[in-house]
Amino acid sequence: MGISISLENRRKAMINPALFAKQPRALIEEIEEYRKETERLGRIYDLHRQLGMSLDLDSMIEAISRWLVPVMPHNLVAYRRFDRRIHTACSSHGPDRQALREIAQELMRHPLNEKRSGCLTTVARYYHLWPLDPNGHDCLLVIHECAELSSAPFDHLEAEVLEELRGPLERALAYEDLYDQARRDSLTGLVNRRVFEERSALEMAHANRHGNPLVLACLDLDHFKAINDRMGHGEGDVVLQKVSKTFARIVRDSDLLARVGGDEFAMILPSTTLENANLLMERLCKAVRELNIRAPEAAPLGVSVGLSLWKPEHATLEAWWQSADAALYRAKASGRSQVCC
Protein backbone atom coordinates (compact mmCIF):
# COMPACT_ATOMS: atom_id res chain seq x y z
CA MET A 1 0.00 0.00 0.00
CA GLY A 2 1.40 3.40 -1.00
CA ILE A 3 2.09 5.99 1.68
CA SER A 4 0.30 9.32 1.19
CA ILE A 5 2.79 12.18 0.91
CA SER A 6 1.95 15.26 2.97
CA LEU A 7 2.53 18.81 1.78
CA GLU A 8 5.46 19.01 4.18
CA ASN A 9 7.03 15.87 2.67
CA ARG A 10 6.51 17.27 -0.82
CA ARG A 11 8.39 20.41 0.24
CA LYS A 12 11.19 18.28 1.66
CA ALA A 13 11.26 16.17 -1.49
CA MET A 14 12.01 19.26 -3.54
CA ILE A 15 15.02 19.85 -1.32
CA ASN A 16 15.93 16.22 -0.76
CA PRO A 17 15.78 14.17 -4.03
CA ALA A 18 16.44 11.00 -2.05
CA LEU A 19 13.05 11.26 -0.33
CA PHE A 20 11.35 11.68 -3.70
CA ALA A 21 13.27 8.72 -5.09
CA LYS A 22 11.97 6.49 -2.32
CA GLN A 23 8.29 7.27 -3.01
CA PRO A 24 7.79 8.17 -6.71
CA ARG A 25 4.87 5.77 -7.23
CA ALA A 26 2.89 7.17 -4.30
CA LEU A 27 3.41 10.73 -5.50
CA ILE A 28 2.44 9.89 -9.09
CA GLU A 29 -0.70 8.09 -7.91
CA GLU A 30 -1.67 11.02 -5.72
CA ILE A 31 -1.14 13.49 -8.56
CA GLU A 32 -3.27 11.29 -10.84
CA GLU A 33 -6.05 11.16 -8.26
CA TYR A 34 -5.84 14.93 -7.90
CA ARG A 35 -6.10 15.31 -11.70
CA LYS A 36 -9.17 13.06 -11.88
CA GLU A 37 -10.85 14.90 -9.02
CA THR A 38 -10.12 18.23 -10.71
CA GLU A 39 -11.66 16.96 -13.96
CA ARG A 40 -14.71 15.66 -12.09
CA LEU A 41 -15.28 18.92 -10.26
CA GLY A 42 -14.71 20.79 -13.52
CA ARG A 43 -17.45 18.77 -15.22
CA ILE A 44 -19.86 19.35 -12.36
CA TYR A 45 -19.06 23.06 -12.45
CA ASP A 46 -19.72 23.05 -16.21
CA LEU A 47 -23.07 21.35 -15.63
CA HIS A 48 -24.07 23.98 -13.07
CA ARG A 49 -22.93 26.73 -15.42
CA GLN A 50 -25.10 25.38 -18.24
CA LEU A 51 -28.09 24.86 -15.95
CA GLY A 52 -27.63 28.34 -14.51
CA MET A 53 -28.13 29.81 -17.99
CA SER A 54 -31.59 28.18 -18.23
CA LEU A 55 -34.76 29.10 -16.39
CA ASP A 56 -37.32 26.77 -17.94
CA LEU A 57 -37.31 22.99 -17.69
CA ASP A 58 -37.17 22.33 -21.43
CA SER A 59 -33.93 24.34 -21.71
CA MET A 60 -32.51 22.58 -18.65
CA ILE A 61 -33.14 19.12 -20.08
CA GLU A 62 -31.47 20.23 -23.32
CA ALA A 63 -28.47 21.42 -21.28
CA ILE A 64 -28.28 18.11 -19.39
CA SER A 65 -28.43 16.24 -22.71
CA ARG A 66 -25.57 18.29 -24.20
CA TRP A 67 -23.52 17.80 -21.05
CA LEU A 68 -23.99 14.01 -21.14
CA VAL A 69 -22.96 13.57 -24.78
CA PRO A 70 -19.14 13.21 -24.25
CA VAL A 71 -19.46 10.40 -21.68
CA MET A 72 -22.83 8.94 -22.57
CA PRO A 73 -23.97 9.13 -26.22
CA HIS A 74 -27.75 8.91 -26.18
CA ASN A 75 -30.96 9.39 -28.16
CA LEU A 76 -33.20 10.89 -25.48
CA VAL A 77 -33.09 12.46 -22.04
CA ALA A 78 -36.39 12.98 -20.22
CA TYR A 79 -37.39 14.40 -16.86
CA ARG A 80 -40.70 14.17 -15.07
CA ARG A 81 -42.17 15.48 -11.87
CA PHE A 82 -45.30 13.35 -11.36
CA ASP A 83 -47.69 16.26 -11.12
CA ARG A 84 -46.26 17.78 -14.33
CA ARG A 85 -45.79 16.96 -17.97
CA ILE A 86 -42.68 15.15 -19.23
CA HIS A 87 -39.85 17.32 -20.57
CA THR A 88 -37.63 15.70 -23.22
CA ALA A 89 -34.54 16.36 -25.31
CA CYS A 90 -34.39 13.97 -28.27
CA SER A 91 -31.78 13.77 -31.03
CA SER A 92 -33.85 11.42 -33.23
CA HIS A 93 -36.21 12.63 -35.94
CA GLY A 94 -39.51 11.73 -37.57
CA PRO A 95 -41.32 8.52 -36.52
CA ASP A 96 -38.32 7.43 -34.44
CA ARG A 97 -38.58 10.61 -32.37
CA GLN A 98 -42.28 10.06 -31.75
CA ALA A 99 -41.71 6.40 -30.83
CA LEU A 100 -39.03 7.30 -28.27
CA ARG A 101 -41.25 9.94 -26.68
CA GLU A 102 -44.10 7.47 -26.35
CA ILE A 103 -41.73 4.96 -24.76
CA ALA A 104 -40.52 7.64 -22.34
CA GLN A 105 -44.12 8.38 -21.35
CA GLU A 106 -44.71 4.71 -20.56
CA LEU A 107 -41.42 4.13 -18.72
CA MET A 108 -41.88 7.17 -16.51
CA ARG A 109 -45.47 6.41 -15.59
CA HIS A 110 -44.55 4.45 -12.43
CA PRO A 111 -40.73 4.48 -12.22
CA LEU A 112 -40.37 2.94 -8.76
CA ASN A 113 -42.34 -0.10 -9.93
CA GLU A 114 -40.30 -0.52 -13.11
CA LYS A 115 -36.82 -1.91 -13.68
CA ARG A 116 -34.20 0.83 -13.43
CA SER A 117 -32.53 -0.33 -16.66
CA GLY A 118 -33.22 -2.67 -19.55
CA CYS A 119 -33.44 -3.27 -23.28
CA LEU A 120 -36.18 -1.77 -25.45
CA THR A 121 -36.71 -4.54 -27.96
CA THR A 122 -39.20 -2.54 -30.03
CA VAL A 123 -36.58 0.07 -30.97
CA ALA A 124 -33.36 -1.87 -30.24
CA ARG A 125 -32.16 0.54 -27.58
CA TYR A 126 -31.39 0.55 -23.88
CA TYR A 127 -32.65 2.72 -21.06
CA HIS A 128 -31.69 3.84 -17.57
CA LEU A 129 -34.20 5.37 -15.19
CA TRP A 130 -33.16 7.18 -12.02
CA PRO A 131 -35.45 8.47 -9.25
CA LEU A 132 -34.10 11.86 -8.16
CA ASP A 133 -35.75 11.82 -4.74
CA PRO A 134 -36.49 9.09 -2.17
CA ASN A 135 -40.24 9.25 -2.78
CA GLY A 136 -39.89 8.83 -6.53
CA HIS A 137 -41.68 12.10 -7.35
CA ASP A 138 -38.88 13.15 -9.72
CA CYS A 139 -37.11 10.90 -12.19
CA LEU A 140 -34.59 11.15 -15.03
CA LEU A 141 -34.54 8.83 -18.04
CA VAL A 142 -31.79 8.24 -20.61
CA ILE A 143 -32.30 6.12 -23.74
CA HIS A 144 -29.20 5.10 -25.72
CA GLU A 145 -28.01 2.59 -28.33
CA CYS A 146 -24.92 1.04 -26.71
CA ALA A 147 -25.23 -2.00 -24.48
CA GLU A 148 -21.79 -1.26 -22.97
CA LEU A 149 -23.24 1.81 -21.27
CA SER A 150 -25.49 -0.32 -19.10
CA SER A 151 -23.13 -0.72 -16.14
CA ALA A 152 -20.21 1.22 -14.67
CA PRO A 153 -20.57 4.66 -16.32
CA PHE A 154 -24.12 4.93 -15.05
CA ASP A 155 -23.19 3.99 -11.50
CA HIS A 156 -20.42 6.60 -11.60
CA LEU A 157 -22.73 9.30 -12.93
CA GLU A 158 -25.44 8.42 -10.45
CA ALA A 159 -23.03 8.88 -7.58
CA GLU A 160 -21.65 12.23 -8.66
CA VAL A 161 -24.31 13.95 -10.78
CA LEU A 162 -27.88 13.13 -9.76
CA GLU A 163 -27.55 14.86 -6.40
CA GLU A 164 -26.32 17.95 -8.27
CA LEU A 165 -29.43 18.05 -10.47
CA ARG A 166 -32.04 18.31 -7.73
CA GLY A 167 -31.42 21.94 -6.78
CA PRO A 168 -31.49 23.42 -10.31
CA LEU A 169 -34.53 21.35 -11.32
CA GLU A 170 -36.41 22.45 -8.19
CA ARG A 171 -35.56 26.04 -9.10
CA ALA A 172 -36.96 25.52 -12.61
CA LEU A 173 -40.14 23.98 -11.19
CA ALA A 174 -40.62 26.99 -8.90
CA TYR A 175 -40.08 29.36 -11.82
CA GLU A 176 -42.55 27.38 -13.93
CA ASP A 177 -45.14 27.70 -11.13
CA LEU A 178 -44.68 31.46 -10.93
CA TYR A 179 -44.83 31.82 -14.70
CA ASP A 180 -47.97 29.70 -14.88
CA GLN A 181 -49.66 31.61 -12.05
CA ALA A 182 -49.04 34.90 -13.85
CA ARG A 183 -50.80 33.57 -16.93
CA ARG A 184 -53.83 31.94 -15.30
CA ASP A 185 -56.95 33.14 -13.57
CA SER A 186 -56.50 32.30 -9.89
CA LEU A 187 -60.17 31.39 -9.32
CA THR A 188 -60.93 29.12 -12.28
CA GLY A 189 -57.47 28.01 -13.42
CA LEU A 190 -58.25 29.08 -17.00
CA VAL A 191 -55.77 31.20 -18.94
CA ASN A 192 -56.21 34.94 -18.55
CA ARG A 193 -56.86 37.72 -21.08
CA ARG A 194 -53.15 38.31 -21.68
CA VAL A 195 -52.55 34.73 -22.76
CA PHE A 196 -55.72 34.82 -24.83
CA GLU A 197 -54.53 37.87 -26.76
CA GLU A 198 -51.07 36.37 -27.34
CA ARG A 199 -52.47 33.08 -28.62
CA SER A 200 -55.14 34.84 -30.72
CA ALA A 201 -52.48 36.77 -32.62
CA LEU A 202 -50.69 33.51 -33.47
CA GLU A 203 -53.90 31.78 -34.55
CA MET A 204 -54.92 34.74 -36.74
CA ALA A 205 -51.53 34.71 -38.47
CA HIS A 206 -51.78 30.95 -38.97
CA ALA A 207 -55.29 31.26 -40.46
CA ASN A 208 -54.11 33.96 -42.85
CA ARG A 209 -51.16 31.85 -43.96
CA HIS A 210 -52.93 28.52 -44.44
CA GLY A 211 -56.54 29.55 -45.04
CA ASN A 212 -57.92 27.34 -42.24
CA PRO A 213 -61.23 28.47 -40.67
CA LEU A 214 -60.95 30.10 -37.27
CA VAL A 215 -63.81 31.09 -34.96
CA LEU A 216 -63.94 33.43 -31.98
CA ALA A 217 -66.60 32.82 -29.31
CA CYS A 218 -67.58 35.44 -26.71
CA LEU A 219 -69.54 34.00 -23.78
CA ASP A 220 -71.42 35.76 -21.00
CA LEU A 221 -73.30 34.07 -18.15
CA ASP A 222 -77.03 34.80 -17.88
CA HIS A 223 -78.57 35.75 -14.49
CA PHE A 224 -75.24 35.44 -12.71
CA LYS A 225 -75.69 38.84 -11.01
CA ALA A 226 -78.70 37.48 -9.12
CA ILE A 227 -76.49 34.74 -7.64
CA ASN A 228 -73.94 37.28 -6.40
CA ASP A 229 -76.60 39.65 -5.06
CA ARG A 230 -78.83 37.09 -3.34
CA MET A 231 -76.43 34.30 -2.39
CA GLY A 232 -73.18 36.19 -1.89
CA HIS A 233 -69.92 36.47 -3.78
CA GLY A 234 -68.57 33.29 -2.17
CA GLU A 235 -71.33 31.27 -3.79
CA GLY A 236 -70.76 33.21 -6.99
CA ASP A 237 -67.11 32.06 -6.99
CA VAL A 238 -68.21 28.44 -6.56
CA VAL A 239 -70.57 28.82 -9.53
CA LEU A 240 -67.80 30.28 -11.71
CA GLN A 241 -65.60 27.30 -10.87
CA LYS A 242 -68.36 24.82 -11.74
CA VAL A 243 -69.09 26.57 -15.04
CA SER A 244 -65.38 26.72 -15.95
CA LYS A 245 -65.00 22.98 -15.36
CA THR A 246 -68.07 22.36 -17.51
CA PHE A 247 -66.63 24.45 -20.33
CA ALA A 248 -63.21 22.75 -20.08
CA ARG A 249 -64.79 19.30 -20.20
CA ILE A 250 -66.58 20.04 -23.48
CA VAL A 251 -64.01 21.96 -25.54
CA ARG A 252 -61.19 20.24 -27.40
CA ASP A 253 -57.54 20.27 -26.34
CA SER A 254 -56.73 22.41 -29.38
CA ASP A 255 -59.27 25.09 -28.39
CA LEU A 256 -58.25 28.03 -26.24
CA LEU A 257 -60.60 28.82 -23.35
CA ALA A 258 -60.03 31.92 -21.20
CA ARG A 259 -61.76 33.87 -18.48
CA VAL A 260 -61.57 37.48 -19.62
CA GLY A 261 -63.78 39.21 -17.04
CA GLY A 262 -66.07 38.63 -14.05
CA ASP A 263 -68.56 36.28 -15.72
CA GLU A 264 -67.18 36.69 -19.23
CA PHE A 265 -65.30 33.98 -21.13
CA ALA A 266 -63.82 33.71 -24.61
CA MET A 267 -62.72 30.86 -26.87
CA ILE A 268 -60.59 30.51 -29.98
CA LEU A 269 -61.60 27.49 -32.08
CA PRO A 270 -58.88 26.64 -34.64
CA SER A 271 -59.68 24.71 -37.85
CA THR A 272 -63.40 25.02 -37.07
CA THR A 273 -66.18 26.15 -39.39
CA LEU A 274 -68.91 28.46 -38.15
CA GLU A 275 -71.42 25.58 -38.41
CA ASN A 276 -69.31 23.26 -36.28
CA ALA A 277 -68.60 26.02 -33.78
CA ASN A 278 -72.33 26.62 -33.49
CA LEU A 279 -72.95 22.93 -32.71
CA LEU A 280 -70.22 22.94 -30.06
CA MET A 281 -71.58 26.07 -28.39
CA GLU A 282 -75.13 24.64 -28.40
CA ARG A 283 -73.80 21.66 -26.44
CA LEU A 284 -72.12 24.06 -24.06
CA CYS A 285 -75.33 26.06 -23.50
CA LYS A 286 -77.20 22.85 -22.77
CA ALA A 287 -74.52 21.69 -20.30
CA VAL A 288 -74.77 24.95 -18.33
CA ARG A 289 -78.57 24.72 -18.19
CA GLU A 290 -78.26 21.15 -16.90
CA LEU A 291 -76.20 22.40 -13.95
CA ASN A 292 -79.58 23.66 -12.69
CA ILE A 293 -78.11 26.60 -10.79
CA ARG A 294 -80.34 29.51 -9.79
CA ALA A 295 -80.67 32.14 -7.12
CA PRO A 296 -83.92 32.28 -5.09
CA GLU A 297 -86.77 33.76 -7.13
CA ALA A 298 -84.51 34.20 -10.17
CA ALA A 299 -84.20 32.63 -13.59
CA PRO A 300 -81.79 29.68 -13.94
CA LEU A 301 -78.18 30.27 -14.83
CA GLY A 302 -77.40 30.08 -18.53
CA VAL A 303 -74.80 31.28 -21.03
CA SER A 304 -75.20 33.41 -24.15
CA VAL A 305 -72.67 33.02 -26.95
CA GLY A 306 -71.67 35.19 -29.88
CA LEU A 307 -69.61 33.66 -32.73
CA SER A 308 -67.55 35.31 -35.44
CA LEU A 309 -65.54 33.70 -38.22
CA TRP A 310 -62.10 35.23 -38.76
CA LYS A 311 -61.79 37.22 -41.99
CA PRO A 312 -58.76 39.18 -43.22
CA GLU A 313 -60.88 42.36 -43.31
CA HIS A 314 -61.14 42.19 -39.52
CA ALA A 315 -57.46 43.14 -39.54
CA THR A 316 -57.13 43.22 -35.74
CA LEU A 317 -58.27 41.22 -32.74
CA GLU A 318 -60.24 44.25 -31.56
CA ALA A 319 -62.29 44.38 -34.76
CA TRP A 320 -62.86 40.63 -34.66
CA TRP A 321 -63.88 40.86 -31.01
CA GLN A 322 -66.42 43.60 -31.79
CA SER A 323 -68.01 41.33 -34.40
CA ALA A 324 -68.36 38.42 -31.92
CA ASP A 325 -69.51 40.80 -29.17
CA ALA A 326 -72.27 42.15 -31.40
CA ALA A 327 -73.46 38.57 -31.98
CA LEU A 328 -73.38 37.99 -28.21
CA TYR A 329 -75.68 40.97 -27.58
CA ARG A 330 -78.08 39.66 -30.20
CA ALA A 331 -78.17 36.36 -28.28
CA LYS A 332 -78.93 38.28 -25.07
CA ALA A 333 -81.65 40.34 -26.75
CA SER A 334 -83.24 37.24 -28.31
CA GLY A 335 -83.94 35.54 -24.99
CA ARG A 336 -80.52 34.49 -23.60
CA SER A 337 -79.02 31.00 -23.20
CA GLN A 338 -78.47 30.64 -26.94
CA VAL A 339 -75.92 31.09 -29.72
CA CYS A 340 -75.83 33.79 -32.39
CA CYS A 341 -73.42 34.05 -35.30
Rank of each mutant, 00 (worst) to 15 (best):
M1S: 12
M1N: 07
G2L: 15
N9C: 02
R11G: 06
A13C: 03
P17T: 08
A18E: 15
L19D: 09
L19P: 03
F20L: 15
F20H: 04
K22I: 15
I28L: 15
I28H: 12
I28N: 11
Y34P: 01
Y34K: 13
K36E: 09
I44E: 10
I44F: 00
D46L: 13
D46R: 15
Q50W: 12
M53L: 14
S54M: 14
L55Q: 12
L55H: 13
L57E: 09
I64D: 01
L68S: 11
V71I: 13
P73V: 14
H74K: 08
N75E: 07
F82I: 10
F82Y: 06
I86H: 04
A89G: 12
A89D: 14
P95M: 04
D96K: 00
L100D: 07
I103V: 02
I103D: 09
A104V: 06
E106M: 00
L107P: 03
M108Q: 06
H110P: 01
H110C: 04
L112E: 02
E114V: 05
S117F: 09
C119V: 05
T122H: 01
V123I: 08
V123S: 01
A124K: 08
R125W: 00
Y127V: 00
L129R: 00
P131C: 02
C139V: 12
I143V: 09
E145V: 07
E145W: 01
A147N: 01
L149E: 02
P153M: 08
E158Q: 02
E160I: 09
V161W: 00
E163R: 02
E163S: 06
R166P: 04
L169W: 02
L169E: 04
E170R: 00
A172M: 01
A174C: 01
L178W: 02
L178Q: 10
Y179K: 13
F196C: 02
F196S: 04
E197D: 04
E198M: 05
S200V: 09
L202P: 01
A205R: 12
A205E: 15
H206N: 07
H206K: 03
N208L: 11
N212E: 13
N212S: 14
C218R: 11
H223V: 13
I227N: 10
N228C: 11
N228F: 14
Q241I: 14
Q241W: 11
K242P: 10
K245W: 14
T246S: 15
S254P: 02
E264K: 04
M267F: 10
M281P: 04
C285V: 10
V288E: 12
R289W: 09
R289D: 12
L291V: 11
L291I: 08
R294M: 12
P296I: 01
P300K: 07
S304P: 08
G306H: 10
P312C: 02
E313C: 05
E313F: 06
A315I: 05
T316C: 03
L317M: 05
E318L: 10
S323E: 15
A324I: 09
A324E: 08
D325I: 04
R330P: 05
A331V: 03
A333L: 12
S337N: 15
